[in-house]
């Protein structure tokens, strides 16, 4: 009997049956890979200005054309994706890790730890995200993407509260009591029962966390906070493109589409996960 791996096998099988989720997963994955492999996919860099090709139409050389400063749009989209996706993924992962640990401690051991952590989280949750971002940027240095940490900090309470509530719920179940009666140690109970049972909501929360981070990150880029030009970022690209919406709409369409496709594909994948993670079908 293979222990815990079985349930994940079942889960994958169920997930594969959901076409929308599989499609969402692969779309997002290919966008990520494309962005990661940007230097190999395009021979242009994202910052060289070539005044001869300002607003050039798509051609064999520049497959998506060039922008108002004559930079290759395809390269800028790929390199921009690197920045945007890295910020979204890293900030959400950080938030999940910290939030999960805090939530588990609070929810499993209760008592004073719970009191302390819950109030800390409440305080954190009461600070508006944008304020957090601006303060972080101001103190750590503008334009170098440090607002990633602010994004992470802002998302921690959501993860922690979710994990805490789920853990408390699970702690009320008799199978935890049964495990305690068997003399199973705390770390094993947490790994085996608590983590196993909070994994579904946590994974789903993680996917929606990514979409939220993506949206906030691009909003910041659009507003010109966070990333210094000429480093491209999807939100910043959209802002640049906005000025030429009438005459040369390609840039704003493509950059907005990149954001939308990422958000939708991650959401579809998240929905599929939610359905697949319930063993009761």
């Amino acid at each position: 009997m293979n222990t815990t791996s079985n349930i994940w096998f079942d889960f994958l099988r169920k997930l594969c049956k959901n076409r929308a989720a599989v499609a969402g997963f692969f779309v997002f994955l290919s966008i990520c890979i494309a962005c990661a492999l940007a230097p190999y996919l395009t021979k242009w860099d994202y910052f060289s200005i070539d005044t001869t090709i300002v607003h050039a139409a798509p051609s064999r050389e520049h497959i998506l054309g060039a922008d108002n400063l004559g930079r290759d749009i395809f390269s800028r989209l790929l390199y921009g994706g690197r920045v945007t996706l890295r910020i979204a993924l890293v900030s959400t992962s950080l938030a999940a890790a910290v939030g999960c640990a805090a939530g588990l401690i609070a929810g499993y051991f209760r008592g004073r730890a719970d009191f302390f952590i819950s109030h800390l989280l409440d305080m954190l949750a009461s600070i508006p995200v944008f304020m957090l971002i601006i303060v972080t940027e101001a103190s750590l240095g503008w334009g170098r993407g440090y607002f990633m940490y602010a994004l992470a900090a802002a998302a921690v309470p959501q993860f922690a509260m979710l994990v805490r509530a789920s853990a408390m719920n699970i702690m009320g179940c008799t199978y935890i009591e049964a495990a305690r009666a068997l003399g199973v140690r705390h770390d094993k109970i947490i790994r085996r029962h608590v983590l196993h049972n909070i994994a579904p909501p946590l994974i789903i929360r993680f996917t929606s966390g990514i979409t939220e981070a993506l949206v906030i990150c691009t909003i910041m880029g659009y507003l010109g906070v966070g990333i210094n030009p000429p480093t491209p970022e999807w939100g910043a690209l959209a802002y640049t493109g906005k000025a030429f919406t009438r005459s040369h709409p390609l840039l704003i369409i493509l950059s907005s589409a990149a954001i939308a496709v990422c958000v939708i594909s991650v959401s579809l994948f998240g929905d599929g996960l939610r359905d697949a993670l319930d063993p009761r079908e």
Binding site: I7, T174, L182, P279
Partner: peptide, 28 residues
Amino acid sequence: RSRMQIVFQDPSDCLDPRCRIGDIIAEG
């Protein structure tokens, strides 16, 4: 713990819904 045990009232609540029966017994 290994000398004293307990059997619970509600069998649906005392088994972890995400564990297979084999894993549940393996815990003991």
